[in-house]
Design a protein around this nucleic acid. Structure first.
Lengths: 230, 230
DNA sequence: GAACAAAATGAGGCTTACCTCATGTTGTTC
DNA sequence: GAACAACATGAGGTAAGCCTCATTTTGTTC
């Protein structure tokens, strides 16, 4: 197991022991290349391609990021933070319904602009990943956003926070389909779903919501984990 | 280009020139194996695995089905027919809204039971594929189902047939996520979407629908075609 | 500018798929 | 039962992508 790497933000800040100049340069190139490649092709894009785009040998990539997840985390930390910020913003808006809309629209916009983040949003990182905490935070904020909107009466009372996963997942597929062909189509879908979320004249739903545990397992699976049957 | 193969239904009927007995047996095994493997793993499952499951060499598979599409088509012809039948049924129901619900629910159920069909439903076959006609038919029926429900006033007036693609795509991702974990969750999502489709709950939508051509390109792309930029 | 640790390199092993084709086997026909 | 076409076979070529590690290069330090 390799030693901890620069735990800090995206780039230039000073870790415990500064990287050698060439190393820092390569690391930055790799992150930039990964951002671009993941945005275009999704999170499963070939790492060889990332290295190539960074103008660096494949071994160098593995020196810096022993596992794909290490790279993925650094690449999406910024966007995840934007998402968290939108969620916090949503919670201090007077109108909780507007807050919910803001939250979902920001999320969808982030997904739409970046196929990598589109994948990233649909999955759950393993517990030990350093962004897992941020994901938990998003989840908590999502819970409060939903509950507040329900209390204010605009959101249908039978809608639970776990139902937001439907938006994420749906949206992720729609982006896959329409990206570059109908760049704003996703917004139409989002508003159709939001109309389904409104309290007024809601019709009974035929199924129970996902339990938190089911949601967890589903998101883990999309991340590529084997579905251990325990 | 290989000569036309048994153009008829799934198996035993007599083609222009009957297959040799062993050939027919192998072909049947291959189809059965493919049905099982595709249902479990989706349309992109490895063909070597299909051959193995059928107890047949990989070369034999390619003898019978020179391209993956040839196999896919035979495998899903039956389910596609079920889907068409549901659509026709939907059109003769008095209540067009109920018809729409039946149509979508049948579709979703087919998708939910078979990960291969789940993929299959989201894509558009190339024009020369022998099931392309059936797909066109589904599309036409879908148009009429939507229009009828709109005329009867239960469906929101700004909803167009192309919007049904959102249901298919959404659903396809949700099945991927929840299959085997929460086997009926998809129905909750479907009913949420349906509530978004009701006339009495409609709020203005912020985006134009997909054009038929955009829809076509999007479905073609999901099928794996290169997105030629013409 | 020596000397050493830190990093970079990329060929190559590994895997998983795809698909082909020279050869061997089997059904069918007369 | 001979003879031939039809069919089955699976080793092996091709291509991606993964990841490692022995070797070489480079920055940094004193």
């Amino acid at each position: 197991m390799p030693p901890e790497r620069a735990p800090a933000a995206t780039a230039a800040s000073a870790p415990i022991r500064p990287l050698r100049r060439d190393a820092q340069r390569n690391r930055d190139s790799l992150l930039a290349a990964a951002r671009a490649v993941f945005a275009e092709q999704g999170m499963q894009a070939s790492l060889e391609q990332v290295a190539k785009r960074a103008g660096v040998a494949i071994g160098t990539l593995y020196n810096h990021f022993p596992a794909r997840l290490d790279l993925v985390q650094e690449v999406f930390a910024g966007k995840l933070a934007t998402w968290v910020a939108a969620a916090e913003q949503a919670l201090i808006m007077d109108d909780a319904w507007e807050g919910l809309c803001l939250f979902l629209e920001t999320m969808c916009e982030l997904q739409a602009r970046d196929r990598g983040f589109n994948d990233f949003a649909s999955i759950r990182l393993p517990e030990n990943a350093c962004l897992a905490g941020q994901q938990t935070r998003i989840h908590e904020l999502g819970v409060r956003i939903v509950e507040r909107a329900r209390e204010q009466g605009r959101l249908r009372p039978d809608l639970v926070p776990e139902d937001l996963a439907f938006v994420i997942w749906s949206h992720s597929r729609i982006i896959e389909a329409t990206d570059g062909i109908a760049p704003h189509a996703w917004r139409r879908h989002l508003y159709l779903m939001l109309d389904g979320f409104r309290a007024e004249r809601a019709h009974p739903l035929p199924e129970q919501p996902l339990t938190p545990e089911q949601l967890y397992r589903a998101m883990l699976r999309l991340g590529g984990a084997d579905n251990g049957t325990d």
